[in-house]
């Protein structure tokens, strides 16, 4: 079985990784972690020519950061499932399209994606990658949602950076 885990550095992504890590997968299951860096110019529309170099530089930094945290997630899963079973990749492009394309090329059986659970105006403005993947993917998709913990104010303020550290401590 091939499991493609789409991540960003958000808490919901780390939750998805944690859920995957805690499941009794069959031996031989392969995991690929993917992080997609969107072209910055596409997010900001037309910009001055002078800004192009800055954007290219920013994209490089985002990719480097993506490589760092996907490697961290990869290392965490390798400790559980073994070195050979886990790989990670950072690619550039539109998020949903890139994930669907990679899933198709890699012949993934299931795409695991965390959901921010956006609704209403947030969803209209920011969109939902999970929803796009669900609508267009050729394979099954598991949307993992955050468990809402009552009386836990820190959960809403956490940007996800501490989640992986907690997972590593657990291992």
């Amino acid at each position: 079985m091939k499991v493609l885990i789409a991540v960003d550095d958000s808490l919901c992504s780390h939750e998805a990784v944690s859920v995957v890590a805690n499941r009794p997968w069959a031996e031989g299951t392969q995991f690929k972690i993917v992080h997609v860096v969107e072209p910055i110019a596409a997010q900001y529309g037309l910009v001055a020519p002078e800004a192009v170099n800055l954007m290219i530089e920013a994209e490089k930094k985002l990719k480097a950061y993506g490589v760092k945290f996907t490697t961290d997630i990869g290392d965490y899963l390798k400790e559980i499932f073994g070195e050979q079973q886990v790989s990670s990749v950072v690619i550039g492009g539109y998020i949903a399209d890139s994930i669907i394309e990679l899933a198709s090329d890699w012949h993934a059986d299931v795409i695991v994606v965390g959901s921010h659970g956006r609704t209403g105006l947030d969803k209209i403005l920011l969109g939902s990658v999970a929803e796009k993947i669900v609508n267009r993917s050729h394979c099954s998709v598991e949307v993992i949602k955050m468990k809402i913990k009552k009386n836990d104010d820190t959960s809403s303020k956490d940007d996800g950076s501490t989640a992986l550290a907690k997972q590593k401590q657990a291992v």
């Binding site: 929803e131 609508n135 998709v141 598991e142 949307v143 993992i144 949602k145």
Partner: peptide, 26 residues
């Protein structure tokens, strides 16, 4: 797919509104 004219399908509604993870089998 759904849009402004075509209402959301059952899987879409469930994945949007449920409080838990949703596994959508193609």
């Amino acid at each position: 797919k759904s849009n402004r004219l075509i209402p959301a399908t059952v899987p879409q509604q469930v994945s949007q509104n449920s409080c838990c993870s949703v596994d959508l089998v193609k």
